[in-house]
Computed example of a mutant assay.
Amino acid sequence: MRKFTSVVVAAAMALVAMEAVVGAPARAAAPQEYVALGDSYASGVGAFPYDSASGACLRSPRSYPRLLASSVGGYT
């Protein structure tokens, strides 16, 4: 039963990935939103300067999510 569940999950993930690849050109015109989850290191603690709107969270424009989104392009 466990192997069957793994196969079903893998098939579902493959279908989602195929939809993302096939549907990408149609959605490429509009900017996509990129969301990254993580701890304080992911938010950019220690990577000065900090975003003043982030308050005590100390988010930095040099955090990996923002750098990745800007390098890939088309993401907010």
Rank of each mutant, 00 (worst) to 15 (best):
Met1Trp: 05
Arg2Thr: 04
Phe4Leu: 05
Phe4Gly: 10
Thr5Arg: 08
Ser6Asn: 13
Val7Trp: 12
Val7Cys: 10
Val7Ile: 10
Val7Lys: 08
Val9Lys: 10
Ala10Gly: 08
Ala12Arg: 07
Met13Pro: 01
Val16Glu: 11
Ala17Ile: 14
Ala17Arg: 15
Met18Ile: 14
Glu19Trp: 14
Ala20Gln: 13
Ala20Pro: 13
Val22Thr: 14
Val22Met: 15
Gly23Phe: 04
Ala24Cys: 09
Ala26Tyr: 04
Ala26Phe: 07
Ala29Met: 02
Ala30Asp: 00
Ala30Val: 01
Pro31Glu: 00
Glu33Leu: 00
Glu33Asp: 00
Tyr34His: 02
Val35Phe: 14
Ala36Glu: 02
Leu37Thr: 07
Asp39Val: 00
Asp39Glu: 02
Ser40Leu: 11
Tyr41Ser: 02
Ala42Val: 11
Gly46His: 08
Pro49Glu: 13
Pro49Asp: 10
Pro49Met: 08
Tyr50Glu: 14
Asp51Ile: 11
Ala53Arg: 15
Ala53Glu: 12
Ser54Lys: 14
Ser54Asp: 10
Ala56Trp: 08
Ala56Gly: 05
Cys57Gln: 11
Cys57Glu: 06
Cys57Ile: 07
Cys57Trp: 11
Leu58Phe: 04
Arg59Trp: 07
Ser60Arg: 05
Pro61Tyr: 09
Arg62Trp: 11
Arg62Met: 10
Ser63Lys: 01
Ser63Gly: 06
Tyr64Ile: 03
Pro65Tyr: 10
Pro65Leu: 10
Pro65Arg: 13
Arg66His: 07
Arg66Val: 07
Leu67Arg: 09
Leu67Asp: 03
Leu68Asn: 01
Ser70Val: 01
Ser71Leu: 02
Val72Thr: 08
Gly74Tyr: 13
Tyr75Phe: 06
Tyr75Trp: 05
Thr76Leu: 04
Thr76Arg: 12
Thr76Ala: 06
